[in-house]
């Protein structure tokens, strides 16, 4: 059993009166992806900044790549990559210059750093823009460049703070694919997110964090099951067929399907093939269908069912 790549034990960090982290325990094995899921103000960025040696904890121990982040900070920095909540790139430099600079600051020679920069730009689909000032990049390109900068030194442990927040759906998908590519390389990743679907897709395990505490953790499936799994929603062509539809779909779920606003809803657990199965059953029962879809629980639903209170977006707007 190799030691965890990332671990936090009893970690507390306060800013004045605000307890940003209030006794956090986390652990993830090498080569896995840990998702830190929580609303704005939950303490995600604070956790990342502690893990990357930018802050010192008030209490508790933090180890990254087997090293203590306080006592062995300099060695930790050689083994991590960080892409913060805001793309940390110099707008006046080109993409290539940004990456070369970071490589040289990791101690590489200019030529080595440049070669690595070119390689990363190609991998992240930025080779055409490599000689343009980063000022001219779109939001998605900036994020990709930022991620590339975090990878310059091939760090075994990578921290991504809300890597897709503010991106359009297309760029989000691109970035997801790039992050999935990293995992294939064996990199350990800790990523924070406000989106359940993102954590679900990318993470091997998820820790849900609220007001500085971990309120639930486990695999994405286990977590979704705790909040009632995914929901199948079927919009009927003819409302009168509802009773037949309810009857036809009942075997798909442990709980009886419900009828809300002209749509049949039921929670489902075994995911693969559910939609096909549902459509076939409805077809056999002679029920016309307008629309059918699987809906994942949102962060808000996860929160509501785990904590009994909704996410507190409004009083947590201040982020830095």
């Amino acid at each position: 059993m190799s030691p965890p790549a990332i671990s936090m034990a009893g970690v507390v960090k306060s800013f004045g009166d605000v307890r940003a982290l209030d006794g956090v325990d986390l652990e993830t094995p090498p080569g896995s992806v840990l998702g830190l899921l929580g609303p704005n103000g939950a303490g995600k960025t604070t956790a990342v900044r502690l893990l990357t040696t930018l802050l010192v904890p008030d209490a508790g121990t933090i180890r990254v790549a087997g090293l203590d982040v306080v006592r062995e900070a300099a060695d930790v920095r050689r083994r991590i990559g960080l892409a913060g909540q805001y793309a940390a790139i110099d707008d006046n430099l080109t993409g290539l210059e940004n990456l070369t600079m970071v490589g040289r600051l990791y101690g590489e020679a200019r030529r080595t750093a440049r070669r690595r920069g070119l390689e990363l730009l190609e991998r992240f689909g930025l080779d055409d823009a490599s000689r343009r000032p980063a000022r001219t990049y779109s939001g998605g390109m900036r994020r990709r460049l930022d991620l590339a900068a975090a990878l310059v030194a091939r760090p075994p442990v990578l921290f991504l703070d809300e890597p897709t927040t503010g991106l359009d759906p297309r760029s989000r998908l691109d970035l997801w694919q790039m992050i999935e590519g990293l995992v294939v390389d064996g990199t350990t990743v800790l990523l924070t997110t406000q989106y359940m679907d993102e954590a679900d897709r990318l993470a091997d395990s998820i820790a849900v964090i609220d007001r500085g505490r971990v309120i639930a953790d486990g695999t994405p499936d286990a977590l979704k099951d705790r909040v009632g799994g995914e929901r199948l929603e079927v919009r009927l062509a003819d409302g009168a067929a509802a009773p037949r539809a309810l009857e036809a779909l009942a075997p798909l779920s442990d709980e009886p399907p419900t009828l809300e606003d002209g749509a049949v809803k039921l929670s489902v657990r075994g995911r693969s093939g559910t939609i096909v199965d549902a459509v076939r059953r409805l077809d056999e029962a002679g029920v016309g269908v307008d629309d059918v879809g699987l809906r994942r629980p949102t962060l808000d639903e996860v929160f509501l069912s785990l904590t009994g209170h909704a996410t507190r977006r409004d009083d947590q707007e201040r982020d830095r």
């Binding site: 900044r49 990357t52 040696t53 930018l54 300099a74 920095r77 050689r78 991590i80 960080l82 913060g84 909540q85 805001y86 793309a87 940390a88 790139i89 110099d90 970071v102 600051l105 990791y106 101690g107 900068a149």
Partner: peptide, 17 residues
């Protein structure tokens, strides 16, 4: 404000550099 200082501080570079 842009987070560049955070990046620099996370790198194994000389502190006053």
């Amino acid at each position: 404000h842009k987070g560049l200082i955070d990046r620099f501080r996370s790198l194994p570079m000389a502190r006053p550099a």
